[in-house]
């Protein structure tokens, strides 16, 4: 992790879109009066959804909205690595998992693809469409290697399928998230190997069970 600081390229201003504002106010209403700053993380997340990243004017706007000092919002925004502090690609923000399970399954190959097609990590690509970074475990180890692109996980990748995926994004398509080899969730490759008995699912194996220590009706 590198030192997180604000981007040198900042927009002149920031305005909440009506949807963002409405959602933010919904979060603020969850907290008692005077404690609205508790909504700072969801509000920053909404801003990131709206803009793709969190700019300095946005930090001030969030501070004003929640009635807290701007430095407190900056502290939060720089603390959490999921808040992007500089502009990300218009088409895709690619976060490749580099933690051990993915690494043993070939995540370095994915990162080589990123380097070749996008450029150095934590930098906008030349065409402005892509931005990639290596991240820590995303909890999809069973489907390693994987990458989170925008809001979805793309799993069971190979350098070739990953490159095709990036091409799809570059072309403006929205590829289907999930396993690239078509498996269901994290089920075994080539289909299920256990719990295959149909009867398990049609209810025919069900029978009444006696639950111990239930209160008797009479005493109730």
């Amino acid at each position: 992790m590198s030192v997180r600081r604000l981007s040198p390229n900042q927009p002149a201003s920031f305005t909440f879109s009506p949807e963002t504002l409405k959602a933010a106010q919904g979060w603020m209403a969850n907290f008692p009066a005077g404690k609205q700053q508790s909504a700072v993380v969801p509000t920053l997340w909404l801003v990131q959804k709206q803009e793709g990243w969190i700019s300095e004017p946005a930090i001030r706007a969030v501070a004003d909205l929640l009635g807290m000092p701007a430095i407190r919002v900056l502290e939060v925004a720089t603390f959490y690595t999921m808040f992007m502090l500089e502009p990300v690609g218009t088409h895709a923000l690619v976060q490749v998992c580099g933690t051990t399970p993915c690494q043993t399954r070939g995540s370095e190959g994915l990162m080589a693809v990123c380097k070749r097609k996008i450029g150095a990590q934590n930098h906008l690509s030349a065409d402005g469409k892509f931005y990639w970074q290596e991240v820590e475990c995303m909890g999809a180890c069973a489907n390693a290697p994987m990458a989170a692109i925008n809001d979805y996980y793309y799993e069971d990748l190979t350098p070739e399928s990953f490159e095709a995926l990036l091409d799809d994004f570059a072309a403006g398509k929205k590829p289907k998230p999930g396993s690239a080899i078509g498996r269901q969730g994290s089920a075994p490759e080539g289909g299920p190997t256990s719990l295959t008995d149909e009867k398990l699912f049609d209810g025919s194996l069900g029978k009444k069970i006696k639950i111990p220590n239930l209160p008797t009706k009479a005493s109730a």
Partner: peptide, 10 residues
């Protein structure tokens, strides 16, 4: 106006 930004060793 003063704050502690970023996290960990940074």
């Amino acid at each position: 106006e003063i704050g502690l930004i970023s996290r960990g060793e940074d």
